[in-house]
Design a protein around this nucleic acid. Structure first.
Lengths: 154, 154
DNA sequence: CCCAGATTGTGCAATGTGTTCAGCCAACAC
DNA sequence: GTGTTGGCTGAACACATTGCACAATCTGGG
């Protein structure tokens, strides 16, 4: 994870559709080096994928909310996780610190639809309490790159 | 946004490095159709980018936490947003419902480092209160595709 | 019925990819 | 010092893919 790796990732983040050859020209290295570096970054898990990023808002789900769920004692997190994974509007689920808690990101077509989504999410006897906050605006869109640029030492 | 669009997105999510030609073979459509569809999906904002996905854990930041910040009256969200945007470990910031609140996702090298990151995030006079939860495990990794598969009507 | 827009299949030149090769250099162990 | 290893380079090659343009066909709505 040296300077070249960081430059590569910056370049491919800015202009993902350039190929190995064009990247090698920009960075003034051999094409094989670009290929090898990218392979290594994928092998070490730094690059987890090249899938296209999709915008839930653009496919009719402009409402985002965060749910915090409290799970009853004795019910596995995985049980609830599987339940939530079955709901398409649930985009992400994490276990968090606290008394057996889960956090999840959900989206919906409207505030009314959000209610329905939440109802579906909560329709599991293992969930004893929940709280919801609605995301109003994105101040900083999800990003990872700044981490790299600063700490290219790792 | 019809069935073909969904199949295209599924295909490119599963195997992003296949090209237009290979995709056209798999879906049994003309290459030009694949190209045109992808261009349209990008133009309409459904596909927001093709950047490689990076794993913060793989670059030395395995600790994830969610902060909820309460902002003092009269201080703009943007002010705090800019402050937070300047911190590389802050990966995402949203305004949320509630009394002038912000939510953010931060990562850190360790629990000790997390403390330092949080201190930096809170080092703004406009922030009057905060709470932190640490993400322990990912039950459902971030995804969008299930939304499409179900609601390909939109 | 007619039309605009989408899709198709085709062809070609230009470009990029996968692969391999030998040569070079720095770091390292002995 | 010597030898070895690993990474980078520049080059070559066959092959696949892309960008672009074209006319033909299909399809849904006015």
């Amino acid at each position: 994870m040296d300077d070249l790796d960081v430059k590569l990732l910056e370049l491919f983040t800015d202009e993902p559709r350039i190929g190995a050859l064009e990247a090698s020209r920009r960075l003034k290295v051999a094409r094989g080096t670009v290929t090898a570096r990218l392979e290594r970054l994928e092998a070490t898990g730094v690059i987890t994928g090249w899938a296209p990023q999709l915008d839930p808002a653009a496919i009719g789900h402009p409402v985002t909310a965060f749910l915090t769920l409290e799970i009853s004692q004795g019910v596995g997190h995985d049980t609830i996780g599987d339940h939530l994974a079955g709901i398409p509007e649930v985009l992400e689920v994490c276990t968090i610190t606290g008394a057996g808690d889960l956090w999840c990101r959900v989206v919906a077509r409207s505030n009314a639809d959000l209610q329905a989504v939440i109802d579906r999410a909560l329709a599991h006897p293992g969930i004893v309490r929940s709280s919801t906050v609605i995301a109003l605006a994105t101040q900083v869109p999800y990003r990872v790159l700044p981490l790299l640029v600063r700490s290219s030492s790792s």
